[in-house]
């Protein structure tokens, strides 16, 4: 049982981080966090990047805790940890580079067609 649990820990870290970042993104756009300043960036981006980095740290910590060798019994948890770390890095790096709520501008802007 613990073999399965250890093997799934890495992907689980990705799943949790991915869900948290996606949920924060949606909530932040709906609540207008991208208009709130938090130092050099918006509160929105700070929250997203922060959660992403926490997920990366968790993935890295898991990877460092696992034994390096020992057949598939150790290899599958290790592969799982790599999967989680790489997936977290790869799927969430857009928090750094893409624009956060732009399409939602259509929702925020008070567009009015005169009668």
């Amino acid at each position: 049982m613990s073999f399965l649990a250890r093997s799934l820990a890495g992907p689980m870290i990705w799943a949790v981080t991915f869900s948290v970042v996606y949920a924060l993104h949606g909530a932040g756009c709906a609540l207008g966090w991208d208009g709130v300043s938090a130092g050099p960036v918006s509160l929105h981006r700070a929250a997203l990047v922060g959660s992403w980095i926490l997920g990366l740290i968790a993935g890295l910590a898991l990877l460092l805790r696992l034994p390096a060798s020992g057949g598939l019994h150790a290899g599958l948890p290790r592969a799982g940890a790599w999967t989680g770390l790489v997936a977290t890095l790869f799927t969430l790096f857009p928090v750094l580079v893409t624009s956060s709520c732009d399409t939602a501008r259509a929702l925020a802007v008070n567009f009015f067609i005169p009668v």
């Binding site: 580079v97 893409t98 732009d102 399409t103 501008r105």
Partner: peptide
């Protein structure tokens, strides 16, 4: 990775932005 970065780059380029574009409905 190459394809993804190209896609995101182009995706950002063609987004609407606040530049006083004509608005139609």
């Amino acid at each position: 990775t190459t394809v993804l970065v190209a896609g995101l780059w182009i995706g950002e380029r063609i987004l609407p932005r606040d530049d006083g574009a004509v608005e139609v409905r």
